[in-house]
Amino acid sequence: MNTTLVMGPVLFNWTPEDWRDFHFRMADEADVDVVCVGEVVCSKRAPFFEPYMADVIERLLAADKQVILSTLALIMNKREMKSVRDTAAIDEDNIIVEANDVSAVALLGGRPHAVGPFVNVYNEGTLAYLARNGARSVCLPVELGMDALGALAKDSPAELEVMVFGRLPLAISARCYHARAHGLHKDGCQYVCIEDADGMEVETLDGEPFLAINGVQTLSHAYTDLSAAVPDLLDLGIRRLRLSPHASVDMVAVSETYRAVIDGKTAPDEASERLSALAGDATFCNGYINNQTGYTFS
């Protein structure tokens, strides 16, 4: 059985041209099977890159990538609800829609769809229900350990997906912490999150790197790197691995590195070294999958 490499949705606020060019490059150069497109974090950002959406999708489809349209994780008003309804209503053979909130799970019910990592799927009961509802793939929450993944993978009624690279999405809020840190109100945020293409770094008072802020989202400061766990994940039957896009890391090279691990052409520790070189100053974590504290790396 083939292993599917998924490029997750861009979580950060990039300039529309950077956003477009990233996806073009994924289409033209990246060794990934699936590319997720769409705004997951803040509905205010979507209008900026929407003019490029059709071109991006066309380019990806022309390059034989499966396109997944990702939807918002937190929906609080009519405008956001409408955007999710509109996306969920898209019914085309070569496009799959990914639910990141239970509202989208409801709207997509009865037809094939994807479930993203922002819907809580912690156990077999929920997984079975969502599969009956039409979920073909389910990207699991980041805090699950190998034991839980193993239990879910056993006779799983849907393809399971695990995020293996990038800053971990840890929390989402109604409140915009980027705006707050700049002394601004969410409604008048001036889109300051565009200043931090991989998130605004957060340290503890004693200077320890800790978290990263992306508007209403909080991520880990460390990048998850589960390359060492890939052989075990494949053994469990988990055949979809998600890479989360970053601006300061060459994501084409990241995808090549993971593909080499999947194909057994690169040893996991060699892959970790390569990723470390690619990601410059970044630190890494893999605690969750080892049933340990999330930020640890071993």
């Binding site: 922002f118 840890l170 929390a171 340990q292």
Partner: peptide, 18 residues
């Protein structure tokens, strides 16, 4: 944070609300 959608605690301590 949106309740039930926060893993900050387990990131730092290994234990989370969910």
């Amino acid at each position: 944070m949106a309740e039930g959608r926060c893993a900050l605690s387990s990131y730092a301590t290994g234990q989370s609300p969910n």
